[in-house]
Nucleic acid binder design. Sequence first.
DNA 1: TGTACTATATATAATCT
DNA 2: TAGATTATATATAGTAC
Lengths: 146, 146
Amino acid sequence: MGRGKIEIKRIENVNNRVVTFSKRRNGLVKKAKEITVLCDAKVALIVFASNGKMTDYCCPSMDLGAMLDQYQKLSGKKLWDAKHENLSNEIDKIKKENDSLQLELRHLKGEDIQSLNLKNLVAVEHAVEHGLDKVRDHQAQQNLQE
Amino acid sequence: MGRGKIEIKRIENVNNRVVTFSKRRNGLVKKAKEITVLCDAKVALIVFASNGKMTDYCCPSMDLGAMLDQYQKLSGKKLWDAKHENLSNEIDKIKKENDSLQLELRHLKGEDIQSLNLKNLVAVEHAVEHGLDKVRDHQAQQNLQE
DNA sequence: TGTACTATATATAATCT
DNA sequence: TAGATTATATATAGTAC
């Protein structure tokens, strides 16, 4: 695209390489913006120069985080790997624990017991009776103290 | 760059828009690959068509995860750090819920009640009595049915 | 969808400040 | 380094298949 044709391979001359990088990076970002506007596309672009300097572009209609979420869904690749997954798993685990606690609690309050069979029902009854005894004992003690 | 000059604004004709998208997306990826090779650059590119279909490119020398780590460092913007934080917060919230459920449960079983004052104790007693009544009712019904 | 065909519009390589 | 110039290489709009 210039005065001479170039092969697509690493430009050995450092100065040319840096100048070409700068021009082409600008060109790339421009094209990214154009396709975004022309075609209603969502584009995210991150470029690192060989010296580490970064340039990025993200379409205005979706932020990078959302783009990456979508990327993970569609590609099946995991970006925030193990850590994220571990946390999600922990949440699931605690939620289940939570659910079973809630159910047990309802049973002790005499709710949702229609699903219990007789044996379980008896167990619940004993638990409640036992609890009641303890509560009454303690209450009696407190009354004495006052 | 073609038979006619076009303004950079949304192409209204759907067919043209889709065709242009397809061509320009290919062009964009090509440019991304070229700058990668020519200039030793690292490039990551994600494109979503308006229909949701995704195309992506990442330079061979660094994977997307590493690019994004670097992006976070250099830009100071948080991508998944924020998500981690959200998940951690959720875990904390559910754990607290869990703890209070556990405590309530122990109270109904007559445990850990030394920390309760008389008023609370009475409330617990009523809850347990009420539960016991319900459990007994239900048990009686089940006995009749057999 | 993709691919092929061109006439044009753009991008950019080489060069110089 | 960052612009300006300009000849040339590429990309692509419009079109048809």
